[in-house]
Design a binder for these strands. Structure first.
Lengths: 202, 202
DNA sequence: GTCTATAAGTAGATAGAC
DNA sequence: GTCTATCTACTTATAGAC
């Protein structure tokens, strides 16, 4: 993969870094310019306004989340294996984008209309099928009875929350300190899988 | 409970509403003044600066989280019942403060030093004891083997994430719509308890 | 395309009347 | 204590030289 070095992509990379960490309200065009090693005027030359630049980054972020969900749920597999795939896919994405969840959740609260438009068509492709599959496996006695939507929610919670909360968690760990971020994620993978597996035993 | 109607408490209530929803960077003193039905100058009369007012709200918010955790873990009960208590306590708090988790997580990312100082002494009182208890119950075969810290983390994830993500989740629900917020929380309580119970069966 | 300089608008904070 | 008016600093955005 050749790294893009055009001014435009350098700006996007810088905008990603700043917006993801600070959000729309907290980000400064000056900081993005500094991060990109250019000046403010050039940002406006490529993207007319802060909002347009932000929208670009936001759409990209939602795309990552949607892609992960769709990729994990589209394969023809058991419910358990689909959830395992979700663990793998998302934790790999989050390893390089630890601010992604908080960023999207935040902007959703501040600007529901904007995100709703982006999210509805991208996500939800494979969700109804997955929920149906859960109901079937429950009926067949393959997994313990559970509300399908809550199962998906539980899996997403176990995957995403610890990543988003890592900075806080590392402070309340008390005696048993939390390992550094990457090692922590490596621990979570089997931890989550085991927890889900146990919970779904019939 | 008699509602406090002093100017000071009216300001705090307004600041709570605005800061919790928009964060430090997104909040505007003018908006807080409007919400309180007073003017900007008066905010500065009571709290010298935006930051001082914000700090007051932040400390309060962290207090709520710490109190919930301590209250749930301090009783002399089994691991499972402590986690059940955590579900009850937190979901009751979050019912009236749905922005609480995102608010704290965000500000932690933006200003780690500030929160770290507040969090370390308040939280972590009962956590080491709880972790030890988990290890003991595992050894005694009362619950399935699990890493104590991950169990606590899993419980917190299942409780908090769906609340924080509710606005997004209600959009990706697809066919099976999510119920309104309060009803959703009522569903989560037994849902989480069941999931944890199943996962911990030896 | 990229820069410097600056305009225009906004937000936090203060002065001073009542 | 509470208000109106104002100051100062910051932020986005544009004009115009190179």
């Amino acid at each position: 993969m050749v790294k893009d070095t055009t001014t435009e992509s350098i700006i996007l990379e810088a905008a990603r870094t700043v917006f993801l960490k600070k959000g729309m309200a907290g980000a400064r065009m000056q900081e993005i310019a500094d991060e990109a090693g250019i000046n403010k005027a050039l940002l406006h030359y490529y993207y007319r306004s802060k909002e347009k630049l932000f929208d670009r980054i936001l759409e990209e972020a939602i795309g990552q989340i949607a892609d992960g969900l769709n990729k994990a749920l589209e394969e023809e597999q058991s419910v358990t294996l689909k959830l395992f795939a979700l663990v793998e896919v998302y934790l790999n994405v989050l390893r390089d984008n630890r601010y992604l969840p908080l960023f999207v959740l935040n902007e959703m609260n501040l600007n529901p209309e904007k995100i709703t438009a982006l999210i509805e068509r991208k996500i939800a492709k494979h969700i109804p099928g997955f929920l149906k599959q859960v109901r079937e496996e429950v009926e067949q006695g393959l997994i313990a009875p559970i509300h399908p939507m809550h199962l998906l929610l539980n899996a997403l919670s176990l995957i995403i929350f610890p990543v988003a909360a890592y900075p806080v968690l590392s402070k309340i760990g008390g005696a048993g300190e939390l390992p550094v971020f990457e090692a922590f994620l490596d621990e979570r993978k089997p931890g989550i899988k085991q927890f889900i597996t146990h919970a779904l035993r019939p």
